[in-house]
Design a protein around this nucleic acid. Structure first.
Length: 641
DNA sequence: ATAGGGTTAG
């Protein structure tokens, strides 16, 4: 806290403040300076709203803002996204002098840019006769953050032509942060070379920003190379790499690197680190590690971070522990429950097939005054379609625009098509696609294709496939789906055609992988796998189970699900191996939770159902789209084909 | 003037 003060800051003022204002007393400073110090202190403590209030008090007490007052206030407006207040301040600035000082000038540019008003920012930029480096930097990063990259480059070129101003590392940061798409990679690499020649690459923050750039361009391996080349890493370096792996689905790599980080002295994980780790636990289904992270959250006192709580809810739900997910959700401070928190818990019930609860929660959310967004609609619509709540889903789709003013996008139409399609209303689904105002994407046609698989409609499947493959030619899942449609129709030619198509396009079906967490370790199984140390026992157990299953079940739909095996030429399916491993190693009475990267195959689905009857255990299987709870010969999912 | 972050069907 500053030691400066001013007489006229009365108790009347103080009553409004949470941070103690400077002491009254014998200040020899310029009165405005005391206010400025106070404002800076508030800004440091991220009390931006309060800083603006203090400013109003300041004006009311007839103190005039100066050069050091405005940047702090403008920053507050930028971070609170209050462009109106910001432009009022702009007017005040103009009133105090003809040309703002460099700091105020760059703060104005930054304020407009952060309020997504880059044109206003540019106007401020152009009005100044002689711009300095900081104004150039503000303008460049403004264009970058508003994804107007070409203009950022233009300003950069202009800057390099100007002899008066020099480029510095902040200039690089601004430029690099604008490169967020794979097709910008070339420019990014040029910039990297440029930074190297200018000697900025040794600046850690610049190196970190290049690392992030490679991640955003989808070049994780390249990012890793850069990561390894950085001699002294800081927390941001680690976090960038961790969330880089997390966002690109390399969950195992995240855990590896997190362990490495823990060994380094002087670097402590912060909320961003743990967020990346939790996200990966959710993808992997690694509940054990997720629990460890939760303990760390407690330990470090990050409990009030709502980002982390949302990630925790998501992690537990996706690891099959709905009960704990719900506990975390219920324990959250009501005020901190954002639409994201609701989405996480609604989605959790959705993937577990508990559509009714998902729907109730959605209504409760609306009642509690949280405005639904587009994402939560995707979640609730899919929850409805998994649970067969067709009418309810249609109702929501309708309300979306009518009641909440949200335009449905392709992602909502794919849910709608899925909803109608699963219910067998293929014709209506097709009509919906045709009536779409936005262009259907691959997922929309993919949902139709999926519905055709369930309801065995070869003709429509071919139409949907044609469309989907045009939009997503390398998505292997759709080839497999069509092949399965042919397989159900016993259309061998069709299967062959798909196989040829895949060969021509050099596409190979991903291997199916099943795994489960046991004693804190992941045990991984491929189909036909014999590498596991317990392999012999696993196969012996499976043999026994197959025999028992045969006694109580005569397969009446042998042909189904075969084509996947034909595409891979695989042996015993991975999910069976994982189930057998679980039975061998866990006590009776405990649930067995298995994760599978693709969909559970139909044969295995039947098999697991029957096994759950024989051994009296609950099996929880997570596949690519949802959870299956097998108990006593029944599965929780209502629509498995 | 400044690098890292939560929720999303098929």
């Amino acid at each position: 806290m500053s030691n400066t003060c001013h007489e006229s800051m009365t108790d009347e003022h103080r009553r409004h403040f949470t941070v103690t204002p400077p002491n009254l007393g014998e200040s020899k400073h310029n009165p405005t300076t005391a206010w400025n110090c106070y404002l800076r202190e508030l800004s440091k403590q991220k009390k931006y709203q309060e800083a603006l209030t203090v400013y109003r008090h300041m004006l009311r007490s007839s103190f005039f803002p100066n050069t050091f007052t405005f940047p702090v206030l403008l920053k507050s407006c930028a971070l609170l996204s209050l462009p109106l207040t910001g432009s009022q301040l702009h007017a005040h600035v103009i009133r105090t002098g003809s040309q703002p000082d460099p700091y105020t000038h760059s703060s104005l540019i930054s304020m407009y840019s952060k309020s997504s008003l880059p044109h206003f920012a540019r106007k401020v930029f152009d009005e100044q006769s002689l711009n300095l480096t900081i104004s150039y930097n503000a303008m460049i990063s403004g264009y970058s953050s508003n994804s107007i990259f070409p203009e950022a480059v233009n300003i950069f070129r202009e800057m390099r032509r100007e002899m008066r101003v020099s480029v510095n590392s902040v200039t690089m940061l601004g430029l690099v942060s604008g490169i967020t798409l794979p097709n910008h990679l070339n420019i990014g690499a040029c910039l990297h070379a440029c930074a190297f020649t200018l000697g900025f690459d040794s600046d850690l923050s610049v190196a970190n920003s290049f690392l992030t750039m490679y991640v955003k361009c989808g070049e994780v391996e390249y990012a890793r190379q850069l990561f390894d080349e950085i001699p002294v890493k800081d927390l941001i370096t680690w976090n960038a790499m961790i969330s880089g792996y997390a966002q690109n689905g390399h969950a195992r790599r995240v855990l590896e690197i997190y362990n490495e980080m823990k060994k380094v002295n002087g670097v402590k994980p912060d909320p961003v680190t743990l967020l990346g780790v939790l996200c990966s636990c959710a993808n992997l289904g690694a509940q054990g590690i997720g629990r460890e992270v939760e303990r760390k959250i407690e330990q470090f006192g990050f409990h009030s971070n709502s980002f982390l709580m949302n990630a925790l809810i998501n992690m537990y739900a996706r690891c099959g522990n709905l009960v704990r997910a719900r506990e975390v959700f219920d324990c959250m401070d009501e005020k901190k429950k954002s639409v994201v928190s609701w989405t996480a818990i609604i989605g959790g019930y959705g993937i577990h097939g508990e559509g009714e609860i998902a729907v109730e929660l959605f209504d409760e959310m609306v009642r509690s005054g949280v405005r639904p967004d587009r994402t939560v609609f995707v979640t609730v619509l899919s929850a409805c379609s998994h649970a067969g709540l067709t009418e309810k889903g249609l109702e929501y789709f309708d309300e979306m625009e009518r009641k909440f003013g949200l335009q449905p996008g392709p992602e909502h139409y794919s849910c709608l098509v899925d909803l109608l399609g699963r219910a067998g209303r293929l014709k209506e689904a097709m009509n919906q696609i045709e009536s779409m105002k936005v262009k259907p994407d691959g997922a929309v046609w993919g949902a139709l294709l999926g519905a055709c698989k369930i309801h065995r409609n070869v003709e429509l499947a071919e139409v949907a496939f044609q469309h989907v493959i045009e939009l997503e030619p390398t998505n292997i899942g759709y080839y497999v789906l069509l092949s399965n449609v042919y397989s159900d129709a016993k259309n061998l030619d069709g299967i062959l055609r798909v196989r040829v198509m895949m060969r021509d396009r050099k596409l190979r079906k991903d291997p199916g992988i099943s795994y489960l967490e046991y004693k804190g370790k992941m045990h991984l199984f491929y189909s036909g796998d014999t590498n596991h140390p317990q392999s012999k026992e696993i196969y012996r157990m499976l043999g026994e189970l197959e025999n028992l299953v045969k006694e109580i079940h005569q397969p009446d739909h042998k042909c189904q699900g075969r084509s996947e095996e034909q595409l891979t030429g695989a042996g015993v399916h991975s999910e069976k191996l994982a189930i057998a491993f679980g039975l061998l190693n866990t006590r009776s009475g405990t649930d067995i939770t298995v994760m599978k990267n693709l969909r559970v195959c139909v044969d295995c689905h039947v098999f697991i159902k029957l096994v759950s009857k024989i051994v009296d255990r609950q099996f929880i299987v997570r596949d690519a789209t949802r959870f299956h709870h097998f108990r006593n010969g029944v599965c929780s999912c209502k629509d498995y084909w």
